[in-house]
Design a protein around this nucleic acid. Structure first.
Lengths: 125, 125
DNA sequence: ATCTCTGCAAATGTTTTGCATCAGC
DNA sequence: GCTGATGCAAAACATTTGCAGAGAT
């Protein structure tokens, strides 16, 4: 990750302007605007490198391929639209999860995933 | 799904006795006790059929392959042990998720996933 | 000019499918 | 004996890796 190539610049720009976590395929499509001959292998390699440097982080939702977003955001979760399939950021958090943690288990982290229709898809339906 | 074969009986028995959701590979290993020449393709096909009939249901956790468990249980979530990788059932639920649902979004369903160490792994560490 | 990065294509790992054979009914 | 179910092997699909050549410094 030492050289500043056209491909990497394009991929970084995609993450900076994205409003939701993106799959590698979405990154490829979007970054091709700035680097037409970009290949999927380069996307995977660059994502891996950016994640290792802590610039982006992985977002995993149940039954979905990994997505990636800029790192350093406040604690948040996601709303997964059953219509368009996009994952939207949901700020904040509710619930005391220690209450349902079984005896003897050590709770370190939690994830909440909301499902339903996003405002766009709810309007259309 | 009309014939009652040795393989299907073995796979059904595995789900009935399981205390946590199982991956297809885990089902294969466990069911081989009752059907030695069982192949992974049969496991996948039988799981699909049992799920379509509503006997079992799919459990998807972030970044994990699908697991399956007997259907018809009360509302519950899962605790995913970062040490042994098993998914444990967590009964009940906390939090009012409407509170964090964005304006205009329609909330239909939610998932909570807890992460940390299960009692066995916590004892050893 | 050097040496990293890229794109292609082949390898990998998981799930699905085709097909000849086996076995429930 | 029919016909659905099985096991094997090949196909499909997403991700990773090898390698020769392109390009940043």
């Amino acid at each position: 990750m030492t050289r500043n190539t056209r491909q990497r610049a394009a991929i970084r720009r995609v993450f900076v302007t994205a409003e939701r976590p993106l799959t590698p395929q979405e990154v490829l499509s979007a970054a091709k605007a700035g680097a037409p001959r970009l290949g999927i292998a380069t996307v995977y390699r660059t994502i891996k490198a950016l994640a290792e440097q802590g610039e982006i982080c992985m977002v995993e939702l149940p039954g979905e391929p990994p997505r990636y977003e800029l790192a350093g955001k406040a604690h948040h979760h996601f709303f997964h639209c059953s219509e368009c399939g996009h994952a939207y950021v949901v700020d904040g958090c509710v619930g005391d999860f220690e209450l349902i943690t079984p005896e003897g288990f050590v709770l370190e982290r939690h994830e909440i995933v909301l499902y339903g229709k996003c405002s766009k898809c709810a309007d259309m339906g």
